[in-house]
Design a protein around this nucleic acid. Structure first.
Lengths: 205, 205, 205, 205
DNA sequence: CATGAATGAGTTTTCATTCAT
DNA sequence: CATGAATGAAAACTCATTCAT
């Protein structure tokens, strides 16, 4: 364990249940490593070493590396939506919530090693369909897609016929931005996406 | 060797030099497997087996798996731009060339297993900066970014001050679409991106 | 495992700790093979096969072949000095201890496949300075050199000014004899060295 | 090829026959590498690369690496005895020739990377009896042993009954010194051996 | 719940050698 | 004589996983 994970950890703290702290420590450490090194390049040994737990303890809590990966994906979604809801608290205008989502995206990525979209990354690292992790990652991405669809749905600025297209385009910008942040380790792509979303909404009716 | 690679191979045929056919066979097979399974999950053993060559032959032509990966990335760029230029032959209007690029993107992805952006995928699988492959993948992505910047530069429809933003947004849409195609194995995201690009250009002045 | 190692093993028995028997088995087998075939010509595969352990078990106990080699060198020194001290038990005269060392050298080499000096052999097989094994082997040789220096230091027969030279010459004879034993698989070189040492001491004052 | 081998090469020049210079270049390069890195750790690829010849050219001149190794051993003996004879030219006293041999040994080792006895090293690297190289190396060592026996034979200073023992002891000192030079990369062990030989002769009658 | 030790199947890479030209 | 290309066998090492305690 080391100090570099401070930001990440604090995000997690509020989610700690009465669960075994060992289990929690494993997820925290695995999350940090999966984000920085990728899932495939992170070995079980490194996780247990940096988490300070025994190998069999990991296998006690997670039957396999893949199960740990699924828990990681679920945790990512929890952390994201939990922080997002807090960020949007009190904001009611759909457009403001949409734009605020991109604002929070910048904050979130800054807190998470500029590591891009964790769902996207897992889908890229494990492209085989039907596996537990692929399935979970697709579910996560669907959740994100639905989130945008739900917001756009209630936006009066947008012509009902265009809503599906707009929601999809927002998702493309969101994905593109998340990836570019990963490449450049800078936040401008999210800002570019935010602006593009505003332009998009204003010019679609 | 098997039949699944037909589409892929035909894309390559026009690029075959007088090079050793063994070397070529290795790149073709590796490309197919890296695209379908990912780089990390594709072992040297599978490549040589499916390419029908000896292990030492691979290492004669490529000093390491990473060098093969670099050659793969370079080849991907060659194949893409070669096909793209052919597709855009005779088209002079910058806007038409921009839109045509997204049209060809759909064709290209269809011919390449709906596998998303190979540069993006490598960057996700090998996030460590400074390695040969990371460097090459970043170079490839920079090439794509510059390609859009160069087109936007000569578009009279767009206000000079907005050109940088527009080019970046186009890139976000391009990346987002390439990724979504990988997830859904369908082409609608490219079409959505194409439409969004048109909207974007028409409403930026 | 096979019967050829009987002599070797009995030398080790007295040193077996409560250590994992797998680890011990690996060191014993590796020692036998390094001595008979050399370090470079002995592969990990042969060691684990003849030791009857899994490859990953070897790497659990020894991070690399080189680390196993270092453990082998350390064990060689333990076995040598442990047996030597037992052989010299009760002998107090420095000259007798010196001569007794060459007597025990013959016994030791006979018990260890007439394989010469294991430190010397490693230095010859791995001449690159600064590696773990080279460093350990030099340390072992320094230990042997110091052993002779310490004995000569307390020999009243020898003029103080000559002590350094005598100790060095004894070491040359010791090394030369160990090597010739390896070549001829006979013990006369050790006997020749023993006699020469006596001559040397008697004629230096 | 590089400049470091100057000394070595000049020793060889006088031995160049009308042989193919390619063959000669291979032996020279292999000698340099075998001496500095050891036989087992020197690969065919490094030899051809540094010699600047094609792989099949090596195999044209030497059916196998082992055959190259045998040629290397033969060349070592030629170079040694050729230089030694030149050094002892005009010296007739057996004792002076014996002492002069150790003097030249220091010169020779200094010219050859302080690399110890090449025969000894091969016997250590390839301990299996009966192979071509082992046989050649033993022959070389026998030649050296006989050389000392022949000198001692004609030394009037020494009692006929002691001649065999003295010759053997000289050989032990010679071997021990050669090895210590390899370890310490200094020449004092040869000087120590030279002095010991004088002491030995003076005190044996 | 927790652990140190053990494992089989896999990884990438290197070796000396041969072949067709 | 010389060469670039090709090769089978073996090298060292790592992986996620399991077991006895």
């Amino acid at each position: 364990m080391n100090g570099r994970q401070t930001c990440l950890n604090t995000s997690y703290l509020c989610l700690m249940h009465s669960d075994s702290s060992v289990r929690e420590q494993i997820i925290i450490t695995a999350s940090r490593l999966f984000l920085s090194q990728g899932y495939n390049l992170t070995g079980i040994n490194q996780i247990i070493e940096e988490a300070g737990v025994a190998k069999a303890s990991l296998y006690y809590h997670f039957p396999s590396k893949e199960d740990l990966g699924v828990a990681y994906l679920q945790r990512r979604a929890e952390v994201w939506f939990e922080g997002l809801n807090r960020h949007l608290e009190g904001i009611t205008s759909p457009l403001d919530r949409l734009v605020g989502t991109f604002e929070y995206r910048a904050i979130f990525l800054e807190q998470n090693q500029f590591s891009g979209c964790s769902y996207t990354r897992i889908l890229t690292e494990l492209p085989q369909r039907g596996t537990k992790m692929h399935t979970q990652a697709v579910a996560n991405k669907e959740g994100q897609r639905k989130y945008f669809q739900d917001i756009v749905e209630v936006m009066e600025e947008i012509d009902p016929q265009s809503k599906k297209d707009v929601a999809d385009t927002v998702l493309l910008l969101y994905d593109g931005a998340s990836h570019q942040v990963q490449v450049y380790k800078e936040l401008w792509p999210v800002e570019a996406a935010r602006k593009a979303v505003i332009t998009l909404v204003k010019n679609t009716r």
